[in-house]
């Protein structure tokens, strides 16, 4: 563990010795896209947890709330009625 840390530190100094940094923005964009792909679906799930009513053509829920009765979405999905 300690070795790894030391190793990463030295890798770090190694990398920082690099003077040219044209790729900074490319990396930022990559990470932004990645974060969007990662958090988009999670946000969707979180919005559903506080949504009471959400239907087309509303982009966001038209009614918010925490009524537990409507929160069994996953269960509803799993139940292949009846």
């Amino acid at each position: 563990m300690r070795n790894t840390m030391k190793h990463q530190l030295s890798l770090l100094t190694l990398c920082q010795s690099n003077k040219i940094r044209p790729s900074f923005w490319i990396q930022c964009v990559f990470i932004l896209l990645f974060a969007f792909a990662l958090f988009g679906p999670i946000t969707n799930l979180l919005i559903w947890t506080v949504a009471e009513t959400w239907y087309f053509p509303h982009a966001l829920p038209s009614e918010w709330g925490l009524n537990i009765g409507t929160k069994s979405l996953i269960l509803t999905v799993m139940s292949q009625a009846p």
Binding site: G40, P41, I42, N44, L45, W48, L73, I74, V77, M78
Partner: peptide, 11 residues
């Protein structure tokens, strides 16, 4: 996985 699938379905 099932939670992932559920959130992706509406996403």
């Amino acid at each position: 996985f099932i939670v992932t699938a559920q959130m992706m379905r509406t996403f």
